[in-house]
Design a protein around this nucleic acid. Sequence first.
DNA 1: TAGTGGTCTAGACCACTAT
DNA 2: TAGTGGTCTAGACCACTAT
Lengths: 251, 251
Amino acid sequence: MGTTQLETAPEPKYWHLKTVLSEALDSEFSVGEILPNERELAARFGVARATLRQALEQLELEGRLQRRRGVGTTVAPPRVGVAVDPAHHTWPGAPGDDWEPVGAVESQNVPLAVSRLLELAPGEEVHVVHRSRVTHGQPVAAEQLYVPARSVPEAATRTAVDAPARARTVLRELQQLELEGQDRAVELGSARADDAKELDRLPGAPVLVVTTRYFADGRTAAVALSTYRADTCRLTFGDNEADAGVTVLAG
Amino acid sequence: MGTTQLETAPEPKYWHLKTVLSEALDSEFSVGEILPNERELAARFGVARATLRQALEQLELEGRLQRRRGVGTTVAPPRVGVAVDPAHHTWPGAPGDDWEPVGAVESQNVPLAVSRLLELAPGEEVHVVHRSRVTHGQPVAAEQLYVPARSVPEAATRTAVDAPARARTVLRELQQLELEGQDRAVELGSARADDAKELDRLPGAPVLVVTTRYFADGRTAAVALSTYRADTCRLTFGDNEADAGVTVLAG
DNA sequence: TAGTGGTCTAGACCACTAT
DNA sequence: TAGTGGTCTAGACCACTAT
């Protein structure tokens, strides 16, 4: 016989569990259905709760499950396709964009990476416009749009009555400029406490961060940091019409 | 005095730890530097190892740390910008694309979501072309390109000598078609075992999955599933020239 | 107030890397 | 063979939701 030790390393329990649960979700559960609680599931599979949780975490990451503290674990609907990059480039706040202005403040305190993209001088004033995006009644994204005061010298945010009006003032001025181009980058991040609250998630939840640079007057005129829920969103780019409706479950 | 119970909920230990470590990384460590091991760090901060690991996991997710079993934890370099969507649309394998053909097989067994996108008939044959992408000497992505046999009737994969040659045969035939358009979607996933191995990660590692649809002859002629390391990659879209060089650390 | 998922502990052992 | 991160256990208690 000889030693047959060429075998592949044993599969971790949580990995096997994930596979089993995934198949059960496909065949025995429907969207919105509540799973047994974690202590019950762990007992049923004969593993420690921590191990069971490792499997559930992965399935949540893949958009298969939704877990809510105090409530329970449910089968998640397919991810929602959200159009991020329409073929026709426009300023934020242009007609037809899905974002809701929430407020705006003036600040000298912006993330280092943003100040580099905008090539800010030390102490330079920046309007920070806060917007949110809702699809199918669910909050899917929160955005901070950084607009140097130099880009919109006429924006009179202090005279506006309420917060959304202040935001609209900045957006309106921005649209006076000629948009010369834009680009985007997508990366994985974890939700800051404020964004998490707005997205109805816990701090640290995985998010897709889209960085958009808007070019005008030969320089970067504004930068948007948009934070999308990674569990529920599929970001779409290009020719496609809004929701293609089909989700590729990447597991 | 009265009860002052309007206070915000206490910050979890691992969250606070993450903040402390993050600041230490900024000020006291440089890229590539090795951190003390987990048992040592946990002792130093007076927490259980599991709690320390929760903080490290988040920092790794944000691309700040790199952990390797048997080796240790090091400070990660800034994320690499990888161009995903050049302004000029082309077939995969066109001159100038960064992918290396690895192999190709014929299969009737494709992911359900892919077969829906391609509107495959049951049992229809599909070429599965496997490619990999390397940047700065590091593997950053693995791809499965699904091409229905009907799209490339002349592709003679069986006569090709080696695996890369079989892949190139399919790609060459694909380029004979007129590309009418393409679109993309990005979502979070976890690495399958085979992709994980190729990307030098453990199975289940977080990845960004890009689904590309290629249109020709009025239908979807091919679909690519590209799996990018989420810890090391920032996907760029649009006008930007390759690497913008600046990383937005989304934490 | 009961029930849920989230945090945390203090261990043990395993898989892997480098020497 | 020593040292690392990865997996797993069996608990305890906390924050939050809904009744």
